[in-house]
Design a protein around this nucleic acid. Structure first.
Length: 417
RNA sequence: UCCCGGGUAGCUCAAUGGUGGAGCAAGAAGCUGUUAACUUCGAGGUUGCCGGUUCGAGCCCGGCCCCGGGAG
């Protein structure tokens, strides 16, 4: 059985529905992967994730670097009981897992430290001064300063691969450098070429350790190149064709899939994904890193992305944004204890009868336990909303009605925008 | 009844006699491979009341009204 199978494609476009097979279960695509940076999704238990229809969880190699040996000793991330900070009981996820390499932190602790990741042109992004950064890039790798305790850590491709292979996620990302919207064409050439060299080193190291925990772990190469067509097509060809000899058999070995990375302007996203995916091998899965607003998911699915991850559904829930088919609600504005979040919603929160006013009361109370309950209920709702969206996109592809579904969904969702 | 302390934004409190501020709450905006139960932003005032001294009073003086503590 191959790692990835395509079940149906969208006629005339790059999109498809398929299934990824891992040692810890299958992922039916397109799929949204919920983000559990520290090995668990904040304020949601494994049972909550299952109730929301989650198929997989994405954690972070940088943030779990110190726990990695302990995770390996417990047979990998799927079986690991994390020491949770949100008061929920510790229990393992036991389903497919993905880890990011720490490449996002190269930007978020480096050039983007203290800034938001924006897709809006008019926001005018600037880079953080070098001396203020907590991540400094060299050819060898990245010197990080831990944002909490100030401890230094060096992580390069080899270190990232060893960490991820100890964590034992089913899918790893090659160690990459995410550039910011403020970076120039010239800097993107430099960073992309370095990311390609890091990709080869990542693949070489990964092959040494991918079976260390007794099951096959997979590696995705990550595409950068900013908003430039020549860079995107070039790196897609380079990484799509990259091979390294398997240390056991000597057989040329490729990446198992690809991560689509970068900071995007919304208006550029579709074109950039098209450039990448027209060049990448068709039969390998592609993960669009870090996006989940409905318009982005539709563009991603149309342009051939198979999986998505993002902190937005859960973070925005904690910050009072409630997702609905008619657009998002700011919970601050809703006090009606009779009004449902969304009539007919199949999420556990709505099924249990929670309303906008009752959730708002929990959120605005001064009681930490009630607030934690709010975070859980709202996160479950938003997560279910986005997961259901990917389920429906998948179904629409299988039934040959993707564009009809897209048009009706987006028209309603953004009608007030 | 007397003594002491206090009365300033919704709350807790700042403010040499010289343009009344902060934290929290409330309100609004933002958030896209989590430094994020976070960040940003406005708005909010007859300084208990009445009078006096002063160029100028939240502040000093007198009276009154509340609140807390103590004494009897």
């Amino acid at each position: 059985m191959s790692f990835f199978e395509i079940e149906k494609s969208i006629p005339g476009s790059l999109g498809r529905a398929g299934v990824i097979h891992t040692a810890h279960g299958d992922i039916k695509t397109p799929a949204f992967i919920s983000v559990g940076t520290h090995g668990y999704v904040r304020f949601l238990s494994a049972d909550d994730l299952n109730a929301a229809g989650a198929q997989a969880m994405l954690s972070n190699g940088y943030h779990l670097r110190r726990e990695a040996p302990e995770i390996a000793a417990q047979d990998g991330l799927a079986n690991w009981c994390p020491d949770r900070q949100d008061g929920l009981p510790n229990s393992p996820w036991q389903k497919p897992t993905i880890t990011d390499s720490g490449g996002f932190q190269v930007m978020s602790l480096g050039s983007g430290l203290g800034k938001v990741v924006s897709m809006e042109k008019e926001r005018g992004v600037t880079n953080t001064a070098h001396k203020e950064r907590l991540a400094h890039v060299s050819e060898k790798g990245v010197d990080f300063t831990d944002p909490f305790d100030g401890q230094p850590d060096f992580i390069g491709p080899e270190e990232s691969m060893r960490i991820q292979c100890q964590i034992g996620s089913d899918i790893h990302m090659a160690f990459d450098e995410l550039t910011s919207l403020a970076d120039t064409y010239e800097y993107n050439i430099e960073a992309m070429a370095r990311t390609e060299r890091w990709a080869e080193r990542s693949l070489r190291e990964h092959l040494k350790h991918r079976d260390d925990l007794g099951y096959r772990q997979h590696l995705y190469g990550v595409l950068q190149g900013g908003r430039w067509e020549d860079l995107r097509r070039s790196t897609a060809k380079t990484l799509g064709a990259m091979t390294v000899p398997d240390p056991a058999t000597g057989a040329p070995t490729e990446f198992d899939g690809f991560g689509l990375g970068g900071a995007f302007l919304k208006e550029d996203l579709g074109e950039i994904l098209r450039w990448c995916n027209e060049e990448l091998p068709v039969d390998k899965p592609r993960h669009l890193l870090g996006l989940s607003h409905p318009d982005d998911i539709f563009i991603g699915a149309e342009m051939g992305a198979d999986t998505f991850d993002c902190v937005a559904p859960t973070r925005e829930a904690r910050h009072g944004k409630i997702y609905t088919h008619d657009g998002n609600l700011n919970l601050r504005q809703f006090t009606d204890v009779e009004k449902p979040l969304e009539p007919g919603c199949d999420c556990p929160t709505c099924q249990a009868g929670w309303t906008l006013g009752s959730l708002r009361a929990l959120w605005r109370s001064g009681d930490p336990k009630k607030k934690a309950q709010y975070y859980r209920l709202a996160s479950a709702h938003n997560l279910r909303f986005i997961i259901r969206l990917t389920e429906e996109i998948r179904q629409s592809i299988l039934e040959d009605r993707f564009f009809d579904f897209r048009n009706s969904f987006l028209r309603r969702y953004y009608k007030n925008a």
